[in-house]
């Protein structure tokens, strides 16, 4: 009898931790139904507020937009890297690229954004180069705007995107390319008809991860957007911490949680359906 309880004893401490998180999440839910004035339950007032107030709504739509764009750009930039790394690079080259990616994957996000400030700022690398080359007299405005945030987001999610893609590219069967080639497919058609479809699971995984990371990004809009770019995490932080409006902050967090869950379910579902179609 005792023996059957052993696994439950083993997982108990971890579950206790998870229980704290679940309690916290349910408090978020609870608070989101309160009124901002602190005079008790108010039903869906906060959610209605988020849905009807144009400026709040903008935080959500704009975050989704920025997340979509940055994910797409990261996919375009990341695919060649993952492909080169797995298909063309020599083993030692691959190892170095891999270590570099991991170093970036593990490097501090705040400091990476700081590096980007040094590049995109008024007197940053790009502007100095541009003025030195005589391309422009006045510095370009490259940050504290949408562009700066996008660059930051892309730079932040690229390692995740590449590391999601390279697994699926590494598993590509080279024989399939050769078979297609012998059957008369030139390289570009092999890429479109064989390589790309077989990479779909990795593309979906990388897209999901990158999209969520961008959507939830806080540091980038704060540092590269100067707090002036409307992203959900900024709204939640402002409401919860700076304005002490916990109900509205909680409601926004609840909506973000739902959106994230929906994205996970959607993309995972797509991936499963795609693969189940032709797998055993």
């Amino acid at each position: 009898m005792i023996a059957r309880l052993v696994p439950y004893f083993l997982v108990a401490p971890a579950l206790l931790l998870i229980a704290v998180l679940l309690t916290g999440l349910s408090s978020v839910l609870g608070w989101s139904f309160q009124s901002s004035a602190g005079d008790g339950a108010a039903g869906l007032v906060q959610y209605a507020n988020l849905a009807t107030n144009e400026s709040y709504r903008h935080f959500f739509t704009y975050s989704l937009w920025l997340a979509a764009i940055s994910t797409f750009v990261a996919l375009l930039l990341g695919f060649p890297v993952a492909y080169y790394m797995e298909i063309n690079a020599s083993p030692s080259q691959r190892k170095w690229i891999f270590a570099g990616l991991l170093a970036m994957f593990l490097s501090d996000y705040v400091l990476k954004m700081f590096g980007l400030i040094l590049i995109l700022g008024r007197s940053g690398l790009v502007n100095r180069l541009a003025m030195w080359l005589g391309v422009t007299d006045a510095p370009f405005k490259l940050m504290y705007n949408e562009f700066g945030v996008l660059v930051g987001l892309v730079s932040g999610i690229l390692p995740y995107m590449i590391l999601s893609l390279n697994g699926v590219i590494a598993r590509l069967d080279k024989r399939l390319h050769e078979a297609a080639s012998v059957l008369g497919a030139p390289p570009w058609r092999i890429f479109l008809l064989i390589t790309l479809p077989l990479c779909v699971p990795g593309i979906l995984a990388g897209t999901m991860l990158s999209f969520l990371l961008s959507l939830n990004s806080f540091v980038t809009p704060m540092l590269l957007g100067g707090g002036r770019v409307d992203m959900i995490a900024v709204l939640i932080f402002d409401q919860a911490i700076n304005l002490a409006n916990l109900p509205l902050g909680s409601a926004a967090a609840g909506v973000l949680f739902l959106i994230s869950g929906a994205v996970i379910l959607l993309l995972n579902g797509l991936g499963d359906r795609y693969q189940k179609r032709f797998q055993r």
Binding site: L176, A179, A180, L193
Partner: peptide, 29 residues
Amino acid sequence: APYRRNVGMVFQSYALFPHMTVAENIVFG
């Protein structure tokens, strides 16, 4: 180039395209 030779090849592992049906595999060429 291999794709201009029109030779048929049956690979040891068959190298069937896993994401295409039997019919799609056959008409690929």
